[in-house]
Design a protein around this nucleic acid. Structure first.
Lengths: 194, 194
DNA sequence: CACAGAATAGACAGATCTGTCTACTTATGT
DNA sequence: ACATAAGTAGACAGATCTGTCTATTCTGTG
């Protein structure tokens, strides 16, 4: 069934679509461009996805997998606890400065961008974006738990980190302030220091 | 020249376009919808704006004015210094919960959304968004200066507040976490407390 | 081999979108 | 009163976009 040597057209379409949606915007990219770029026939696209919106949703889920796998692996490369939490911001810094080829040239948060274009909170796309954010929060929370703080303190640190992370991504993208991750890191360092 | 009693068509177009762009996305809204909603003729639109992109840019600048004026007035309503900085997050909380009719039903940060749709950092639209963020940072910095801290400490507090503000807006929108502003406020309160 | 599923190329329908244009109708200031 | 500017309604051209469809080819498995 699932062949091996040639890349799965399903996966190829998602990857190509993601790259285009991420760099140029979703509504600004037509399916014909995705097809031309991937070299896949239109019939094949509509064989795998019932509509463009379903393809968009698939790209969101694809990005969720890639991005979260990348984060998880980065946080595992350093000692658990405080180091791992600070490493999050090293990872963001690398991303902002395009030192992470797997994650594509920095263009803001794809989930924020997609939510902006699919504003209806009930839409499958917006919900998939919300799920991603919840998963990342859970990931951070897991690492915060290793610090063995009180429940309340752990909640606060988690929220601080998540808010700073989101803020850094927004500012790095809109303002072009590529140091945002390092600035956020300094704040977390100061808070965890005591 | 500039008439008074009837609303300026120029302004009417911008206001109508903003509301539609903000709630539905920019590329998802055609000029015909803006015209139908505002009751203005197409010729009139293209008399005032050479293209849709110019109209978009005008809505960004319009939003910058409204949003910043609103923020400025909110921060002036409380004693200068620490209170004003905390009031920023009360204002955000009101915005998230749609208690600020002037600012329109909460739909994330228009500048982040517009930047996502016009990704080219050199485009006039993206640059206008960056300018807005710089102005807001300057506004916060002005209030932080009243705390008479060291230059370094003032920079740090300003960055903390700006990062938390951006993060709160993102999370409130994408995740639907409407408490984000209050959570951010608690962090700032803790930091300013000592 | 034969057959079924997957893929191709691209024409096509129908909708929509930007921007232009014509012909006509107010306003306004001198 | 008259010229000038601003506005209206809507047809139109030309591009583009989503999704369908036909006719054909490739590929893996029984």
């Amino acid at each position: 069934m699932k062949q091996g040597v040639n890349m799965d057209k399903h996966e190829l379409l998602i990857r190509t679509a993601f790259k285009l949606f991420y760099t140029r915007g979703i509504h600004a990219v037509g399916v014909n461009l995705v097809l031309a770029e991937s070299g896949v026939a239109k019939k094949t696209l509509y064989h795998h996805f019932p509509s463009k919106e379903h393809l968009v949703e698939a790209t969101v889920r694809y990005r969720d997998r890639c991005y979260r796998d990348w984060l998880i692996s980065r946080l595992e490369q350093v000692p658990a606890g405080k180091d791992a939490l600070l490493e999050l911001f090293n990872a963001l810094d690398d991303w902002f400065h395009d030192r992470v080829p797997d994650i594509d040239h920095f263009h803001g948060c794809f989930f924020v961008n997609a939510s902006a274009e699919f504003g209806d909170q009930k839409s499958a796309i917006h919900r998939a974006c919300a799920e991603h954010k919840a998963c990342v929060t859970a990931l951070i929370r897991k690492h915060v738990n290793r610090l063995s703080l009180s429940e309340k303190k752990a909640d606060e640190i988690t929220q601080l980190i998540i808010l700073l992370k989101e803020g850094a991504i927004s500012l790095a993208y809109v303002q072009g302030n590529l140091n945002a991750a390092k600035e956020a890191q300094k704040i977390v360092e100061g808070t965890l220091g005591d």
